[in-house]
Simulated assay, not measured.
Amino acid sequence: MPASELRAEGIAARLSAAGLTPRVERHQEVTSIEAEVPESLSADSWREVLEAVAEADRFGLLANSLNGRTLWAAVRTVAPATGDVREPGRQR
Score class of each variant (00 low, 15 high):
A18S: 15
L15G: 11
R23H: 13
D84Q: 09
Q28Y: 06
E5H: 13
W72V: 04
A56Y: 01
L50N: 04
R23T: 15
G10Y: 00
V53Y: 04
R23E: 14
V24K: 00
L15V: 14
E55P: 08
G60K: 05
V75L: 01
R90I: 11
E39M: 12
S40I: 13
N64T: 03
G89I: 05
G68H: 08
L61C: 04
V78G: 11
R7F: 00
W72A: 06
H27T: 09
A43N: 10
G83W: 01
W46L: 08
S42W: 04
L50M: 06
P80T: 10
V75E: 02
L15W: 06
I33A: 00
V53I: 14
Q91L: 15
A73L: 00
V85F: 02
S16Q: 15
R90A: 08
R58Y: 01
P2Q: 05
S32N: 13
E29R: 14
P80I: 06
A35N: 03
A13T: 14
E55A: 15
F59G: 01
S42P: 07
E48A: 15
G89V: 02
L50D: 02
A63H: 10
R26C: 08
V37P: 00
A17V: 08
S42A: 15
F59P: 03
T31I: 09
S42L: 07
L20R: 03
A12R: 03
R58K: 01
G68A: 15
V37L: 12
V53A: 10
S16W: 09
F59V: 03
A63R: 10
A18I: 11
V78I: 12
A35W: 00
P2I: 02
V37C: 05
E51I: 07
L62Q: 13
W72I: 06
P88K: 05
N64W: 01
V53C: 09
Q28H: 08
E25V: 15
V49F: 01
S65K: 15
R92V: 11
V24H: 00
E29K: 12
G83A: 08
L62N: 11
A13E: 13
A73F: 02
P22I: 05
A74E: 08
P22A: 05
R86V: 14
